[in-house]
Design a protein around this nucleic acid. Structure first.
Length: 804
DNA sequence: AGCACGCCGACT
DNA sequence: GTCGGCGTGCTC
C-alpha cells in the first residue's frame, strides 16, 4: 500500500507555511514516522530541501497535481516527538511565525541543513567547458561570478553540464576509534610464532591483544596508543589480518567533563519558609496539577535550595525536571551547584557550548540519559519526556523573550508544556515581573513569599548619594566622595568591591565641539558608538564599523571628542584615583570571546582583583563571599527613557545588584549614585521594598493603561522607502481599527525611535487590549495578505518588552 | 527562498 | 527581429 507524508518544508515564507504532500517510497515505509527530517524535491527545478514530516496517511491527498516522492530520510528516530510537534504548531500561531522557524528553534542548530548548488561536467570536456572548469569536474555556484553562471546556464541547455542540489545534514555524531580482540589468547601466541621476528610492532600488538582477550568492553585506540608504542597504522594492519575488529564508538563532547566528578552535595536543612514552599510545589507535582507558583524571595532567601529539593522530589517520583536560568545567570557556580546535587543526570544547555556540544547534550536528553536539564531560554524546548517540574529562575529577566522570529517568551512555552505534562511551574524572583505578580494577586498563580534570608543575615545597608550635590563639590564625573572613601577602605582591608555602570540608555559617541556634528551610521539613524578596544566606531544595530575621525567631517575642526560614559573611561578614571587598586573590567568588550565571562569571574573569585567593574551583567547571580561593597555609579540612566518599564527595570537592577553585597558572614554595604534620589524606584529599592514598589507601579500602570492591565501587540511595517512603510502602517491601522472593540486602544502609528535600521525604514503601531476574540484571526490574516511583497515587511510582536 | 513565466527597452 | 530587465506567482 502506498503511503503519503505531510511535510513542512524549509522555506521560511508565509506562502509555504503549510504541509506539503509527498509519496513515501516503499523502502522507507516501515521506518518513517512523524517528527523525522527528510529531504524532498521542491519547486520546478531539481531543487532539494530539508523538511519535517508532520503526518503520515494511507489515503491519497486531494491534490490535483502529481505528487513527488521523498528523496531521503535523515533520521532513524523522530527528532520531534508528538508533544514538540504540537508545540511547534501552537507556537507558530501564537507568535505569528513560520512553523519551520519554530521547529528549527526547538532543535540544535546542527539539525538545520546547509545547502549547496553545484554544476557538474557531463561527458568529455569541450573547449567551452575547459575555459570555466579547467581541470575540475565540479564547481560550487557560491564561488562563481555572475558572468560565469550565465555561461554555465547556456552550457546546461546544450546538455554539457548539469546542476545538482545538495542537502547537507550537519548533525554529526562524534566517534572515537576502539578495538576489540577477536581471537583467544592461545591463538595470538600461535600467530606470533609465524610472524617474522623483525616485525617488532606486530609482535607487540599480538602480545597486547593476548593480554586483553578477557576484556569485555572495546578498548579505545587512545588507551592502546598510550599503553604501547603502537599507532593507528599498526592496529589497522591487525584488523586487516583478522586479529581484531576496529570499531567507531559513539561519544559525547562533554564540556563539563571536569565537573562530572565534582563532589556530590547533600540537601541542606530548610528553613520553615523554604520547607513550606517545597511542600506546596511537590504536592502539586504528586497531584499532577499544572499549577503555577510564583516564589518571591529576597536575594539570599534560598530559592535555589527550594528548586533543587523540588527537582529531587520530581525525580523520586520517576519524572524529569527542567530548570531555566537567564543566560547571564548560567554561571559555572550555578552549574556546579546543580551538577553537585544530581551528578551525571544533568544536561546543561547554554550559548557557550559549541554547536557539536549542544547537539550532544540534546542527544543525552533525548535518549533519556539526563533527567534534569538546566539551560537558558531555548532549553525550554529540551526533548524531555514525562516532565514533573519546570522552574524559571529570575522570571522577570528580559532575556527569556527572544527578539527575533519566533518572538516567543519562554514563560509562555513553560506554561504550555506544564499543561501538557500536568506538572507544576515555579517562577522565582526577588523582583517578579509586574505581569506575574499581578497574576498571583488575582489567584491565577499561587504566591509563595520568602521574607527571611536563609542565613538570617540582614539585607545590606543601602546609601543613596545625590549626584546633583556632588557635582558642585568635586570635578570628578563618576565617583562621589563617599564612594571613593569606602572603596579606599576596602582596598586597604583587602576586601572586594563590585562597581556597576548602568549602560542602559547610554553610549559613547563622538561629537565636534565646534559645530556639534555627531558621527552617524550610514545605514541606520543612530550615532556610532566608540570602541576603544578595536579603535573604531561601531553601529550597535547593523554592525557597521569605521575609523575614529581625527577631524570633524563637517567643519574640519580638530576639536572632535568623545562623550558619554563607558566602562573603559570609568576604569581609567578609577585607576587614576586609586592607583593601588587592581581592577577587573567586565563588559561586552571583555567578554566577547567564549568563556571570557567565566574566566573573569574565576579571577575575581581567586582575589586577583580588588574591584570588579562592569555593566548590567555583573548584577546577576554572582556569589562572592568577600564582596562587602557594591557601588552603582549611575542608577538612573534608564529612568529617562520613554519606556513604561523603565522604573521596573531600574528597581530590579538596583535590588539585584544590592544582593551582591554581604553574601556570607561579612556585612555588606551598597552605595547608589543618582541624580533622582527622590524617585520611587530608587527610594523603594533602597529599603528592599518590592511589595511597596509593586503597589506603586501598579497604580501608575493602571493610570497609563499599560501592562499588566492591558495585553499589547506591536505591529511593525518596514520598507526601503520611508513613504511606503508609512503608507502600509496607516493602511494596517485602518484595517485593524474597525475590528477592535471600544475597550481596545491603538497607539500610533509612529516611526520607530530608530526609524532606519540597515537601510530600511520602520513604522509601528501598538494595540492595547483586554479581550479581543477577533484579533488573533485578524492579525494572522494580515500576515497572510502582506506576504513579503513589493519590498514591504510586516512583523508582529506579541507582548513586546519595549515599544521603543 | 528560488525559479519560471511573462511582458517591455537597447542591441547582435 | 532577440536578449534580458525584474514584476508576479507557485512550489506537493
Amino acid at each position: 500500500m502506498v503511503q503519503f507524508a505531510q511535510v513542512i518544508v524549509d522555506v521560511p515564507t508565509l506562502q509555504t507555511n503549510r504541509p506539503y504532500d509527498y509519496v513515501i517510497p516503499a523502502i522507507w515505509q516501515a521506518q518513517l514516522r512523524a517528527g523525522m527530517r527528510v529531504v524532498v524535491p521542491f519547486g520546478k527545478g531539481q531543487r532539494q530541501i530539508q523538511g519535517f514530516v508532520v503526518g503520515i496517511t494511507d489515503t491519497a491527498p486531494d491534490y490535483t497535481g502529481e505528487l513527488k516522492a521523498i528523496t531521503q530520510v535523515l533520521d532513524l528516530q523522530p527528532v520531534l516527538n508528538p508533544e514538540l510537534l504540537a508545540l511547534a504548531k501552537w507556537l507558530a500561531q501564537w507568535t505569528f511565525a513560520f512553523q519551520i522557524s519554530c521547529m528549527q528553534t526547538m532543535l540544535p542548530s546542527v539539525m538545520k541543513a546547509s545547502y549547496s548548488k553545484k554544476v557538474r561536467l557531463l561527458g568529455a570536456p569541450t573547449p567551452a567547458t575547459t575555459t570555466i572548469f579547467h581541470d575540475q569536474t565540479e564547481l560550487d555556484f557560491a564561488d562563481l561570478a555572475p558572468e560565469t553562471i550565465k555561461q554555465l546556464l547556456k552550457l546546461q541547455q546544450e546538455q554539457l553540464v548539469e546542476v545538482v542540489y545538495q542537502v547537507h545534514d550537519r548533525a554529526k555524531v562524534k566517534t572515537i576509534k576502539a578495538i576489540k580482540p577477536l581471537l583467544a589468547a592461545a591463538d595470538y601466541t600461535a600467530i606470533a610464532g609465524q610472524v617474522p621476528a623483525n616485525a617488532k610492532r606486530q609482535h607487540e600488538l599480538l602480545t597486547y591483544l593476548a593480554a586483553h582477550t578477557t576484556v569485555q568492553e572495546p578498548i579505545t585506540l587512545q588507551q592502546v596508543t598510550t599503553e604501547t608504542q603502537l599507532t593507528l597504522t599498526h592496529v589497522q594492519t591487525g584488523a586487516a589480518k583478522g586479529w581484531l575488529r576496529l570499531i567507531e564508538l559513539e561519544t559525547y563532547r562533554d564540556p563539563y567533563a571536569e565537573l562530572a566528578s565534582a563532589p556530590r552535595t547533600q540537601p541542606l536543612t530548610l528553613t520553615k519558609e523554604q520547607a513550606n514552599a517545597v511542600h506546596q510545589i511537590t504536592t502539586a507535582g504528586q497531584q499532577q496539577h499544572d499549577q503555577v507558583f510564583l516564589v518571591e524571595g529576597v536575594t539570599g532567601s534560598g530559592k535555589t535550595e527550594i528548586y533543587l529539593q523540588s527537582i529531587q522530589a520530581a525525580l523520586n517520583s520517576g519524572r524529569t525536571a527542567l530548570m531555566l536560568v537567564p543566560e547571564i545567570g548560567l554561571t559555572p557556580q550555578m552549574v556546579a551547584r546543580v551538577r553537585g546535587r544530581f551528578g551525571a543526570h544533568v544536561a546543561v544547555l547554554h550559548s557557550g557550548l559549541s554547536n557539536g556540544e549542544r547537539y550532544d547534550e540534546w542527544r543525552r536528553i533525548e535518549r533519556g540519559e539526563a533527567q534534569v536539564v538546566v539551560g537558558a531560554r531555548s532549553a525550554i524546548f529540551a526533548p524531555l519526556t514525562n516532565i514533573g517540574l519546570i522552574i524559571m529562575d529570575e522570571e522577570h529577566e528580559g532575556s527569556y523573550k527572544q527578539d527575533e522570529m519566533p518572538r516567543y517568551h519562554a514563560r509562555d512555552v513553560a506554561l504550555w508544556r506544564a499543561k501538557y505534562h500536568h506538572c507544576p511551574v515555579v517562577l522565582g524572583s526577588a523582583t517578579p515581573s509586574l505581569e506575574s505578580r499581578a497574576r498571583a494577586q488575582k489567584g491565577v498563580y499561587q504566591l509563595i513569599r520568602l521574607k527571611e534570608r536563609a542565613n538570617h543575615q540582614p539585607l545590606p545597608e543601602v546609601t543613596v548619594v545625590d549626584m546633583k550635590n556632588e557635582l558642585k563639590k568635586t570635578k570628578e564625573d563618576n565617583f562621589s566622595g563617599l564612594l571613593m572613601q569606602e572603596l579606599r577602605k576596602r582596598v586597604l582591608h583587602k576586601e572586594q568591591s563590585v562597581l556597576m555602570l548602568n549602560r542602559r540608555g547610554f553610549s559613547s559617541f563622538v561629537m565636534c565641539r565646534d559645530c556639534g556634528f555627531v558621527l552617524k551610521c550610514p545605514n541606520c539613524d543612530i550615532s556610532l558608538t566608540l570602541h576603544m578596544d578595536t579603535h573604531s566606531m561601531k553601529c550597535h544595530y547593523c554592525g557597521h564599523e569605521e575609523a575614529i575621525p581625527q577631524v570633524c567631517p563637517n567643519c574640519q575642526s580638530r576639536k572632535i571628542r568623545y562623550y558619554g560614559t563607558g566602562t573603559q573611561k570609568v576604569e581609567s578614571e578609577l585607576q587614576g584615583l586609586l592607583p593601588e587598586a587592581r581592577i577587573l573590567r567586565m563588559d561586552v568588550d571583555t567578554t566577547r570571546r567564549k568563556g571570557a565571562h567565566a574566566k573573569i569571574l574565576r579571577q575575581f573569585g581567586r582575589h586577583e582583583a580588588d574591584i570588579l567593574l562592569g555593566t548590567q551583567m555583573i548584577a546577576k547571580g554572582l556569589d562572592f563571599p568577600d564582596v562587602t561593597l557594591v557601588g552603582v555609579l549611575n542608577a538612573d540612566t534608564a529612568l529617562g527613557l520613554p519606556d513604561f518599564r523603565a522604573s521596573e527595570r531600574t528597581f530590579q537592577l538596583l535590588t539585584q545588584v544590592s544582593g551582591r553585597a554581604g553574601r556570607a558572614e561579612k556585612k555588606g554595604e551598597v552605595i547608589v549614585q543618582t541624580y533622582n534620589p527622590e524617585h520611587y524606584a530608587i527610594r523603594l529599592a533602597r529599603h528592599h521594598d518590592y511589595e511597596g514598589f509593586y503597589q506603586r507601579e501598579m497604580t501608575l500602570r493602571h493610570q497609563g493603561g499599560y501592562p499588566p492591565y492591558y495585553y499589547t501587540i506591536l505591529v511593525t511595517a518596514s520598507h526601503e522607502e520611508e513613504n511606503e512603510a508609512a503608507k502600509k502602517i496607516f493602511q494596517l491601522m485602518n484595517q485593524v481599527k474597525p475590528v477592535l472593540s471600544p475597550q481596545a486602544v491603538l497607539l500610533g502609528p509612529t516611526p520607530r525611535a530608530i526609524a532606519r535600521v540597515n537601510k530600511r525604514y520602520y513604522y509601528q503601531m501598538v494595540i492595547k487590549y483586554k479581550h479581543e476574540p477577533q484579533l488573533q484571526k485578524l492579525l494572522t490574516q494580515i500576515m497572510q495578505e502582506n506576504q513579503a511583497r513589493n519590498g514591504i515587511q510586516i512583523s508582529i510582536d506579541r507582548e513586546p518588552l519595549s515599544f521603543i
